[in-house]
Amino acid sequence: MKIAIASDHAGFKYKEKIKEYLSEKGWDIRDFGTYTEASCSYPDFIIPAARAVSEGICERGIVLGGSGNGEAIAANKISKIRCALCWNNRTARLSRRHNNANMLALGERMISIEAAYEIVDIWLNTEFEGGRHIKRIDAIEDLGS
């Protein structure tokens, strides 16, 4: 599975650590930036990552910032994106099971790197339940048509 990853300056350190962590586990990572801790505008990096997921270039995406809120908002402006801001294992699991989230937002200032690794692992390895949740996702997708 190819995973898009992107951050602003406030999520840069975790992006680099998560990118290395996932690469060591054999995941195919495409980094959309930022590439330094210099202050920057998160949409410049989050939007291209979300477009890569929306267009099928990458199957999933992970975006990071200080809180992860702005990154999730930006990603969710792109058609076919369901970006979930997760802060613990349960939110990660439910974002996949019930919402089929194809992007994950994390806040570097909100959680430890150990928690981030756990959330990422759960999020990448949890399957969508389908069933009653499909009609809800379809209703959301219809808004973008």
Rank of each mutant, 00 (worst) to 15 (best):
M1Y: 04
H98V: 08
W123T: 13
G130K: 11
D8T: 05
D138Q: 15
S145V: 13
Y35R: 01
K25P: 01
V63S: 01
T36R: 02
Y117K: 15
N99F: 10
R93F: 12
S54L: 03
G130L: 12
E129F: 13
D138H: 14
N69G: 13
K13V: 06
S95P: 10
M110E: 14
E129S: 14
E141V: 14
K135Y: 10
S7N: 02
G65Q: 05
G70L: 09
Y14T: 00
S145Y: 14
R82Q: 12
P43D: 00
I5P: 00
A52N: 00
S145F: 12
C86D: 05
L22K: 04
R136P: 09
I134Y: 09
G26M: 01
S95F: 08
N99Y: 06
R136I: 12
R96G: 06
I3K: 04
S54C: 07
A84E: 04
S95L: 09
I57Y: 06
F128L: 12
G107L: 11
K77E: 05
Y14G: 03
V120C: 13
R132G: 12
S67Y: 06
D28P: 01
I29L: 05
I3R: 05
G107E: 10
E127C: 08
A105T: 07
I81L: 04
A72R: 04
K25S: 06
E16I: 00
G26Q: 03
A92V: 12
S54A: 15
F12W: 03
R93H: 13
D28L: 02
I140Y: 15
H133G: 09
N76C: 07
A101M: 09
N125A: 15
P48K: 04
N102H: 11
S39N: 02
D28C: 02
S41Y: 09
G65S: 13
H133F: 15
D121K: 15
G144I: 11
L106C: 10
A116Y: 06
S95M: 08
E71I: 04
A6V: 03
G66E: 05
L106I: 15
E59S: 10
E37F: 01
T126R: 10
Y21H: 04
N76W: 06
C86M: 03
K135M: 09
I134Q: 15
D44N: 07
Y35I: 01
D142V: 07
W87C: 14
D142L: 12
G61W: 01
